[in-house]
Amino acid sequence: MGTGPLLLLATLEGTVMAAVLALAAVGLSLTFGVMRVVNVAHGEFYMLGAVLAWAVAQAVPSAPLGFVAALLIAPPLVAALAWVTDTTLLKRLNYDPESTIVATIGLSYLLQQGALSFFGPDARPVAAPFSLRLQFPWFGYSGYKLFVVLAALLVLGAVWLFLRRSKAGLVMRATQVDRNTARAFGINVDRVYAGTFALGAGLAALAAVLVVPISQAHYLMGHDPLLLSFIVVIIGGLGSLRGTLIAALIIGLADGILSMLYPPTLAKIVATLAVALVLVFRPQGLFGAPAR
């Protein structure tokens, strides 16, 4: 394959990976930004979304219908679970950073076991809602992958609009800036936190429903999205949506191109170290304001 097609493929793959990263990370960015807590169970919420998508697909005979049904069912269910988690657990911990980490590690074990018990240990494929294949002269490419890119843009745009234009978004941003002042102005901070946590989890599940047709549902799948989301969120800068998007693009494209130039495992090692070094020398992320 010539350099041109190769570059085209690398760019396509990098863009898709960036979309997947951004989708997985946007929910985490929200909870992390507004609540300043690390939700280790974020990857498990993502996994639940994928698993539910598979379960729905089993119940609904047609792939497009199943996809739409999963989009409607999985995110609210996962969001509800997160709401309950927040009000019964995280609130009692007063959102102490360390306790929250331990509690969400515990929660992620619970969710993994739940998925293993009810869903089984096998990897399960989920059909894409449509099976468009683009045939280039040199290689073929999945049309659904490009749809994921589009969906990522839509989701990010919707979240941005929600935060900027809606009253709820304003309240969330106010809480992010200063929770005590927000409380003084009569904002019910507890409900904002529960809502944010639920929204973050729902977004993780939504991301999973969108992404699962190009990967598969498996009870241990939450680990990678968690790690990658963290990287994206931190590199992008805390609570910065724009940063999250740009970080996802940089990491996605860099990963795609690096792994074509070097032995792939070596490229992964180099990329991992590079992310660490970015954090070391720009701890506030590439687009975050310096810590106050």
């Binding site: 657990l89 929660l107 293993l116």
Partner: peptide, 12 residues
């Protein structure tokens, strides 16, 4: 796994 998870949560 569930038992470990419950213990951790109970602990915190």
């Amino acid at each position: 796994l569930a038992v470990i998870g419950v213990t951790l949560i109970g602990l915190v």
